[in-house]
């Protein structure tokens, strides 16, 4: 059992390294080699925590952020949401229409209503996206995100998952990622650049 867990962790790590390499490759390439970058993430059409669906086609001209997480996450997700909330406060009016899409990797527990109430604790610009169990592997693959269900001793489970925030520009192109634990200064600089706000 222990060995099995280790193997699956190795697989997760390997997938993460490949994902990181793809991101790096996509980002480091010049403007002309942007095919991979252009395809990163989109297009998508998923159920929204605000009701209805979110179609990436309607996001044209608006930069946005994407995060994969789940509400039964004790640390990384609340920390990231709290950091993004602080960022919203600091960005002020420039981030008025800047949405952060929280794609749940745990659609079994994260219903539309539950995810809505969870995100509204932080900021109304957080929008939950709830893929079906069939849509989840596809959307994760498109974002080079990984997730894994891990059973816990009480018969429940927790989720391992990619914890970076992806930043997309108004053309739907991935332009940067915010890593977990990244210093606030670096995070704010990337967000200001994305939104065209001068960095003080």
């Amino acid at each position: 059992m222990k060995q099995k867990t280790n193997l699956s962790l190795v697989l997760v790590a390997a997938a993460a390294i490949i994902a990181a390499a793809l991101v790096t490759f996509g980002l480091s390439g010049s403007g002309t080699s942007g095919k991979l970058t252009a395809e990163f993430g989109g297009p998508f059409r998923l159920a929204s925590s605000n009701g209805g669906v979110v179609d990436s086609a309607t996001l044209k001209g608006k930069p946005y952020a994407v995060y994969f997480g789940f509400t039964h996450c004790p640390e990384v997700c609340p920390t990231t949401m709290a950091e993004m909330t602080t960022a919203y406060e600091k960005l002020g009016d420039a981030a008025r229409d800047f949405q952060t899409f929280f794609i749940t990797v745990d659609p079994e527990r994260d219903t539309v209503e539950f995810l809505h109430d969870y995100l509204m604790t932080y900021d109304k610009r957080f929008v939950g996206l709830i893929p079906t169990m069939a849509e989840l592997p596809v959307i994760a693959r498109n974002f080079r995100a990984v997730y894994e269900k891990v059973p816990t001793s009480d018969g429940s489970y927790t989720m391992n998952h990619t914890a970076s925030v992806y930043l997309f520009d108004g053309d739907g192109k991935l332009v940067a990622t915010l890593g977990y634990g990244e210093p606030e200064k670096a995070r704010m600089a990337k967000l200001r650049k994305l939104l065209g706000v001068p960095n003080p």
């Binding site: 962790l9 997938a15 990181a20 891990v150 001793s153 927790t158 391992n160 914890a163 970076s164």
Partner: peptide, 21 residues
């Protein structure tokens, strides 16, 4: 209702969590 002792790790941007049985 319950508590567990966990270890969280970050590798290549992926968060993994293990219960320390």
């Amino acid at each position: 209702t319950a508590c567990q002792i966990h270890e969280m790790k970050m590798a290549g941007g992926v968060m993994t969590m293990n219960e320390m049985a």
